[in-house]
């Protein structure tokens, strides 16, 4: 049943830009943020809240811009290398950060991401400062497409990756490693006494989550055509946590549901009033009050009630 629902949802998403072309950009951005929120949700399973994951989102987008500036012009190569860049950032930062828990983990992630933001904003000669860097349209298998065609390819590729990567993350979360990650939240002592190195379980999760945020960042960079330091600002990280909580941390679809809801709500609200934040805020309060398990909780209500 869930498979049918998921397949129907993907088909509807694929068809939407045919009827409302303006939605293509919004949906691409929502999927990009969904990847990053999924990264946050992976860590949330271990009870760790990262308020700094926008750093990996931005690092990957800057990676694309730097590689493009260096002459790399192939879409697949740019995408893979930028995600690897984010994963590398994740491995370096994670080696230090996974030693911490609770508020210390959250605050240190925030601090590291703000250092990164400051570097992006202040190193004008390297990063273009607050002007950011351009992300040119790359070639796809040697073919350089016009912008509208590229954006369509980008959307459908993002949608495909959402399914494939989402399935891979689902497998990971159901694997022994994924269960060990959830077990960190409930009993670290028992894990150690089972001979399981908690730091390694967390570091793997951290690198996975950074790579997911990186994938989102690269897609966002391609979609927007520019990367700016605001990609890494703390409000962007908070936004990702919000999406993860809104979607529900129980499963992979939650992050994408949360991102789609928030992006569509945002797009609708800005057409109504300048005070669109008010509409978004009220909607969020309603969702959080009446759906404490998030959107994913609606899909797995039976499962949730048995807990």
């Amino acid at each position: 049943m869930r498979m049918i629902l998921a397949a129907a949802a993907v088909l509807i998403l694929a068809a939407l830009p045919v009827f409302a072309p303006w939605l293509q950009f919004v949906l691409t951005l929502a999927i990009a943020k969904g990847f990053a929120a999924l990264g946050v949700a992976v860590l949330l399973r271990a009870g760790l809240i990262s308020i700094g994951h926008a750093m990996f989102f931005a690092a990957s987008a800057y990676g694309v811009a730097f590689l493009a500036r260096a002459g790399v012009n192939d879409f697949a190569v740019l995408l893979i290398l930028s995600v690897l860049t984010a994963a590398l950032f994740g491995a370096v930062a994670g080696a230090f950060l996974v030693r911490y828990r609770a508020i210390f983990f959250a605050m240190l992630n925030l601090a590291v991401s703000m250092v990164f933001y400051a570097l992006c904003a202040k190193l004008y000669g390297v990063t273009g400062g607050t002007d950011g860097m351009a992300v040119p349209i790359p070639g796809i298998f040697g073919v350089v497409l016009a912008e509208p065609a590229f954006k369509s390819v980008l959307f459908y590729l993002s949608l495909t990756l959402m399914v494939l990567v989402g399935f891979a993350v689902h497998r990971y979360l159901n694997s022994p490693l994924g269960h060990a990650l959830s077990a960190v939240h409930t009993n670290e002592i028992r894990l150690e006494y089972l001979g399981i190195p908690v730091w390694a379980v967390l570091l793997i999760a951290y690198v996975v989550s950074a790579a997911l945020a990186g994938l989102g960042g690269a897609i966002a960079g391609f979609a927007i055509g520019r990367v700016v330091p605001e990609f890494a600002f703390w409000t962007a990280s908070g936004h990702l946590v919000l999406i993860a909580v809104l979607g529900g941390i129980g499963g992979v679809p939650g992050a994408f549901l949360g991102a789609l809801f928030l992006e569509l709500l945002h797009s609708a609200a800005v057409t109504v009033t300048d005070a669109w934040n008010l509409i978004v805020g009220v909607a969020l309060i309603i969702v959080i009050m009446f759906m404490p398990q998030g959107f994913y909780g609606l899909l797995s209500r039976k499962e949730a009630s048995s807990l």
Binding site: P176, H179, A180, N187, L194
Partner: peptide
């Protein structure tokens, strides 16, 4: 692992002995 099922507690312990590293 109090939030997990009894069988999951056991299977994780068995995996810890044999092969946790499959993702």
């Amino acid at each position: 692992f109090s939030a997990q099922r009894v069988i999951d507690n056991m299977m994780l312990a068995l995996a810890a002995k044999r092969g946790l590293w499959s993702a």
